[in-house]
Design a binder for these strands. Structure first.
Lengths: 343, 343
DNA sequence: TTGTATGCGTTATCAT
DNA sequence: ATGATAACGCATACAA
């Protein structure tokens, strides 16, 4: 990347508007009332005579007055802010969740304070502290590495989504095992018998494999396995390994992530194998890329948006002092072009 | 998606820790000093005797005290918050920018307040107001539809990235025209002569096309064009249209976005045309998906992360009262498998 | 070095 | 219906 010389516009440094925005007292003075009345006229709380409210509103808009959230929050004891900690902002799945959180929140007049954990415990901890320094009313942690060790007051209304540390009371989860189960069923239903699994480190992949393995075992089948790291490259390597020799190629592959499935597809292209005629491939997550691949990838959908919605609602309920219970989501198969009858 | 029954954990409703966190007075009392001394001991501002500081710190940690950001912000007149308005959180390119902003910000002890504009002027306006209600020190707007009409006090240190409304003094831009130019050069260099452009509404696509057209004109060439909407589907339709008849197929296509390029690739697959042997394809943005496509897509890279960094730094400078000038970035060609010598 | 006192901008309580 | 005033939690100028 290159940063060329600055554009021709003049440097911007000095303010173009009054240094100090008008405060409540100024409005009160101009309107000839007390600050208490101004607060009532605007806040909608108490009773104010129509003509007084009229005058106040008039002066308020004239002076461009808007209540300071700082002062307001100070006295109310809350900030209308919700913390959100995600492993990686630029990962599409998390983007979906963020979008969900934001959509719900904006309906409640709240905003979201964002931070990343980079899948690292220490970073997550400092992110949480950072966020709490802003007096958020609550928060959501996605894929927490810390779990209960999070420096968070439980009462604040913090919710964990797909936490790496299970067992917390206030959480939103995905039934990964059921996902693996569905994948196995789809492959079996399309008459695949020589199966392979491409996994990755971490609890989620393990759970997906467990469901996969259990269903295969029930059908009297085993499978080959390859350990990747959720990257496309590791999927490519998996594919190259699985389809190396001339003997006994798998005719069905289940990858614990769409990126790895993409890698497998690429290996298959390079070997000149037809998908799904010769080999069926199933991914996990159903990220946007799934439908962009060639052929379009069948995947186990992780309902990111609904999970995000559930998480905020849980947090909001907690903040409101209401009771709340954990929620479990079940993934669903999204059938596309990479599975189907063989040959 | 399915939401199954709640998990077995007990409902969580009542606080597990002291209702009210210890305040500065409590610490002062326990340490036997005044609140002013506590403030100094912790804030690092004034001078405090070592033993006093010792005692204060001791009590502070013992009581689990942490200064309220609300009170602090109120008196300091700033919040250490930066607003960030993006069109769509789940769009990878914006994800990159968000990541950049966050990385830089965290180094300055600041946090980011996020909102989406959904590429809609009204939504953008309300998002901005929402954000400003939290007394942010400044902000960044990506792809603003409002431009100078943004309800933002210039002095606050707001920066616009790739604004739809040009001419603002505090902005970060991409030289789209140069990008189109580079694309044209790459196609010409690989001996393509029957070219096509797939565009979309908006200023950015126009600029990219302008650069493309100018360079082709200089070579005495024209091109066919198709108007899409940045979606894969529109790219697919473009491809189907361009390669419909038996006559005079293009041998090089430049799409104003990677998604549309993906659509073109798919159309080419369906027609059984070889890329790049028969047709070369170039996308724009170099989003993550570019290298996931088959074949891997050559694209004009929009340096999202560096642009994000530049934007925060600009904002930070503005907030600090320093002068700042607009910055222009130049896109670069990322050569992959979808271009190269014909046949 | 430490304490006192004031102010930040608002809401809420209590009189009037 | 309206006004005076006390918080809210902290930082800081000033006095000691």
């Amino acid at each position: 990347m290159t940063r060329s010389k600055p554009l021709g516009s003049p440097a911007l440094t000095s303010p173009a508007v009054p240094l100090r925005a008008a405060g409540i007292r100024e409005v009160a003075r101009q309107a000839g009332v007390s600050i208490a009345t101004v607060s009532r006229a605007l806040g909608g709380g108490g009773a104010v005579s129509p003509q007084t409210r009229e005058r106040v509103l008039e002066q308020a808009t004239a002076l461009g007055y808007e209540p300071s959230p700082l002062g307001r929050n100070l006295v109310r004891g809350r900030s209308d802010l919700l913390g959100l900690i995600v492993p990686n902002v630029s990962f599409p799945l998390y983007g979906e969740m963020i979008r969900a959180v934001e959509d719900v929140l904006s309906r409640h007049g709240m905003s979201i304070l964002l931070a990343s954990s980079h899948d690292d415990a220490a970073t997550e901890r400092s992110a949480a502290q950072h966020i709490m320094r802003h007096a958020v009313d609550g928060g959501i942690v996605i894929n927490s590495r810390l779990g209960a060790a999070l420096p968070v007051r439980q009462r604040l209304g913090w919710v964990q989504v797909a936490s790496e540390v299970p067992g917390l009371p206030n959480r939103v989860e995905l039934d990964n095992e059921a996902g693996g189960d569905v994948a196995a069923h789809e492959l079996l239903a399309t008459r695949r018998r020589r199966l392979a699994f491409v996994g990755a480190p971490g609890r989620e992949s393990q759970e997906r494999e467990r469901g996969f393995a259990r269903t295969l075992a029930a059908a009297g089948l085993t499978y080959r396995r390859f350990e990747g790291d959720y990257s496309e490259l590791s999927g490519l390597q998996a594919g190259e390994t699985l389809f190396a020799g001339p003997d006994e190629w798998p005719d069905g592959v289940f990858a614990a992530g769409d990126l790895m499935a993409a890698g497998v597809l690429r290996a298959l292209h390079q070997r000149g194998l037809k998908v799904p005629q010769q080999v069926a491939v199933i991914g996990f997550d159903d990220a946007v890329i799934a439908s962009l691949l060639y052929p379009r990838l069948t995947s186990i959908r992780q309902p990111a948006y609904p999970m995000g919605v559930a998480a905020v609602e849980l947090a909001l309920r907690l903040i409101g002092g209401q009771s709340a219970e954990p929620v479990m989501f079940t993934p669903e198969l999204v059938r596309r072009e990479s599975t189907g009858p063989p040959d």
